[in-house]
């Protein structure tokens, strides 16, 4: 086991080294390079049974990043988690949003560039536009999530006198559908915009590289038979049959 581990680490190191050589350019010809990559891949494949034992590449099994960067009130995080799980529920295919760590992914994203719209044009004025003109709210994404979660809580209290995360799945779906169809009145933004943001964020968390805190154990990828980060498919691209390949995340570069 230890031996196998070492071997695959070496392989990856060699991959990085080879890739640097490509970057260097002049030192190495393309033909030779192709051969190296091919060898590399073969070696990687030989050592892959090791990975099949369920080694957690994501590093977030007991991960140090499973805490909150954005939400301050844990109840809001629980509401978000419950809503995310309804959008992407656990089923026979595998884990749902909660099992994949999606709520942590969303929390972390809300704390950074995504939540603060740092690379987006946020200067006014903000008159109402047509649907084809896109997002025109002065609200940043983290504020839209705050408002959306506030309304999720408010509606479930009003309709059921319960917390959103205590409702049955059907009850939760009914409320989420109201958001989806734009029937909930929200401050500064329409509820469909919030719902679409939430839906996209859930799918992003389910399927982004595990380095972002979701897609735990690459289970999102495994459900879809998506192999994640692979150096090369040169030797498989012409295959007639469907290839099931053990996925690999970007952590492969840092072992």
């Amino acid at each position: 086991m230890a031996d196998e581990e070492q071997k695959s680490t070496m392989t990856r190191r060699r991959f990085i080294r080879n890739s640097s050589l490509i970057a260097g350019g002049a030192a190495i010809g393309g033909g030779l390079l192709g051969t190296l990559i091919g060898m590399n891949l073969d070696e990687e494949e030989r050592t892959s049974p090791n990975k099949l034992t369920g080694h957690n590449q994501s590093g977030n099994g007991q991960a140090s990043n499973r805490a909150l960067m954005y939400f301050t009130d844990k109840e809001n995080f629980q509401v978000l988690s419950a809503a995310a799980e309804r959008i992407f529920p656990e089923d026979d295919n595998g884990p749902g949003a909660i099992g994949l760590g999606v709520p942590y992914f969303i929390d972390h994203q809300l704390a950074g560039n995504y939540g603060n719209n740092t690379r987006e044009y946020m200067q006014g004025p903000f008159p109402e536009g047509t649907p084809t003109q896109g997002y025109q709210s002065p609200l940043k994404r983290h504020q839209i999530f705050d408002e959306g979660i506030r309304m999720l809580k408010e509606i479930s209290q009003k309709n059921h006198q319960k917390k959103f995360d205590e409702l049955t799945g059907e009850e939760q779906d009914k409320i989420l559908t109201q958001f989806d169809t734009g029937k909930v009145k929200m401050r500064g933004v329409d509820s469909t915009t919030f719902f679409n943001l939430l839906r996209s964020a859930v799918l992003e968390g389910a399927y982004a590289d595990p380095l972002y805190g979701g897609n735990n154990n690459m289970d999102g990828w495994k459900m879809k038979n998506f192999p994640g980060h692979q150096g090369s498919y040169l030797s498989q691209i012409e295959a007639k049959e469907f290839k099931e390949i053990q996925p690999q995340s970007l952590h492969a570069f840092f072992k």
């Binding site: 987006e120 399927y207 982004a208 380095l211």
Partner: peptide, 30 residues
């Protein structure tokens, strides 16, 4: 080329547009 070693990251590049224009500085109206 050496800046693209971490490029197999759909979220960073395809969804959050790592290589694209910073629209906080420059965009178009429509």
């Amino acid at each position: 080329t050496k800046d693209f070693l971490m490029v197999h990251d759909e979220y960073r590049y395809a969804i959050r547009y790592e290589l694209m224009q910073d629209t906080s500085r420059e965009t178009v109206t429509f």
